[in-house]
Design a protein around this nucleic acid. Structure first.
Lengths: 328, 328
DNA sequence: TATATCTATGAAAACGATTTCAATTCGGAG
DNA sequence: CTCCGAATTGAAATCGTTTTCATAGATATA
């Protein structure tokens, strides 16, 4: 059923139908006739023809590092929630943690003529900044702070700082840190800096903080913990960049015969649902992942709807909540 | 840059360019000229125009009950993996566990002229069967068995049966079951039936099995456990329809002063990553969620690519692996 | 050599909407 | 009664491709 057929059936011109749908000036009688015809036929306009003609879509591209991760899926759910409520349709692509892939997927989306994109970034390189800034369509970054692009991110520094204070306040003096690659400005750099700031507050030498690097998996966290245990057997606290790393670290500590939390305090970041169910319950900071996705989506919608010639670059940092549990 | 402009620049007709891109008969010289022109201009054909003209797309719609769930996100990741590798683009929609919404979202996808759909179903009603069977585009269901639609599902019955055997073989005689709504044929019905079959194998009265209903949240599992504890204080085993329910049940049992696994055995289904990290480690069955998503995607691709007039209805049941841990 | 079958090619007709554009009608002001 | 602006209307152009269709040349078959 095309608009032409529908028009013939209603005894009007296609233009009239188009005006009916898009709100042009039209007499009440025609309006009624067309309404009836649509009612009867269940006519739906063809989206491909519309986009070809109007050169606009309600498609949003979302690039995520991976889908099967608690933090990411919560962000994605938040974004999808808001966007579909606002009438947009979301296309997802996975970058597989590869910065190059992130850009490739964004390029791919462009050729699919999406109206805007959301990127859950794992890094913040000058190339990324430039690419996103020069993108001809609105873009919002989640999870990393991009100076020249709209972004929504978490208070990584503050969360790590406060967790560190919490640990040191309990009298721990030989903390170690398990972090992730420095290429990740948010998780890799900000959280480490927060920890170092916490150490300095307590008069400790931040330069001397033993650090092991891990990726985002539990297994890798376990391995990192084992390395640290070998080098610093007298450690009495472990600050981890993510909860999963902390879970792995706890495994390794237990396997090494350390009592938790008597011998060693452990903290993570992210407040995974499991924090409350492993033993001991893991102290962590709650990050509002779903909210960050929703916020990014709202930002994007605003950019898409605004017809201002120059678009403001808006940054939103979301706060966190300390979840004090038994692991310290 | 349109095809027309590109053609003029190369000194050929638009048809020639189209033939170059789609493999029509074309002389080697023209081929070279066009290649150069595309090289130079970076021309990309317009997708909207293509779909308008050819009436085909490489868009796939995927409807999931929710995105932020371990099982779902793993399935989704598997599907996305295969589909994007095969050159398709995936649009996601959330049904929010509402069977009506599942159909609505599928309808929405149809108006967006997707080439095919994957539905992660929570129920299997006659209406769903009919709707999907009558869909003019290929469809694959994941997680539920639909007789008249291609589907990929797990061996819910077998997994529940074998877990029940495991529990009873340990000498437990007063098991209880925490399940989910019977509207969910896979999780609600098949798993319960598996448990009942297990009971009968050991000469127990399946009719007398105490059952509490829960939804898919940990909190709800905890509440269900509390109800069962109140009514059957002498229970010595809890079989749970999902791992999250089991986690909640373990919380409630511990709160009630029961020792795990000495006083009560607990088992779940799904093999959440956390099974290995809560205490006691939860015995469960591993389901190949990612594989199910991949498999569904492969099925769909096959349907899309096949030009056979009549499409076979293919069913795939995936096996499971018992993960024997300390909770029993 | 004549005829039939290919390949190579561009002009032009779709695909299904929106958006000029020009024509018509209709009030109301002069 | 005439004239002007606004509201209605449909014909036709347009968006950027793909796909006939027709034609011309080339090659193969008889």
């Amino acid at each position: 059923m095309t608009m032409k057929e529908l028009a013939k059936l209603a005894g009007v011109s296609p233009s009239a139908v188009s005006r009916y749908l898009n709100g042009g000036s039209l007499s009440e009688e025609k309006r009624a006739v067309i309404r009836d015809a649509i009612q009867k036929t269940g006519y739906e306009p063809d989206i491909a023809a519309q986009t070809l003609r109007t050169r606009t879509t309600d498609l949003i591209g979302i690039v995520v590092p991976r889908l099967d991760s608690e933090a990411v899926s919560r962000m994605a759910a938040g974004a999808l929630d808001v966007l579909s409520r606002e009438g947009y349709v979301c296309q997802f692509a996975v970058s597989d943690m590869d910065p190059e892939q992130e850009l490739n997927q964004l390029r791919l989306f462009q050729t699919r003529s999406v109206a805007g994109v959301i990127l859950m970034a794992t890094v913040c390189t000058p190339e990324h900044e430039r690419f996103l800034h020069d993108l001809p369509i609105p873009a919002v970054v989640v999870g990393q702070k991009f100076r020249s692009v709209c972004s929504v991110y978490h208070d990584d520094y503050g969360a790590a700082l406060e967790l560190t204070r919490l640990v040191l306040r309990r009298g721990r003096t030989r903390p170690v840190y398990i972090g992730v690659t420095e290429r990740d400005a948010a998780v890799g750099v900000s959280r480490r800096r927060g920890v170092e700031a916490g150490l300095r507050e307590f008069g400790l030498d931040a330069e001397a903080l033993p650090i092991a690097l891990s990726d985002f998996t539990l297994e890798s966290g376990r391995a990192a913990m084992q390395r640290l245990l070998a080098e610093h057997p007298d450690l009495d606290a472990v600050i981890c960049a993510t909860d999963h790393i902390a879970f792995g670290a706890m495994d390794a500590l237990r396997a090494a015969g350390r009592r938790l939390p008597e011998d060693v305090s452990v903290v993570g970041v992210g407040d995974s649902w499991a924090c409350d169910h492993i033993v001991p319950h893991l102290t962590s900071t709650h990050f509002y992942f779903r909210t960050s996705g929703q916020e990014a989506a709202r930002m994007l919608v605003e950019l898409l709807r605004s017809d201002a010639p120059v678009r403001p670059i808006r940054q939103t940092m979301l706060n966190y909540t300390i979840q004090y549990r038994d692991s310290i």
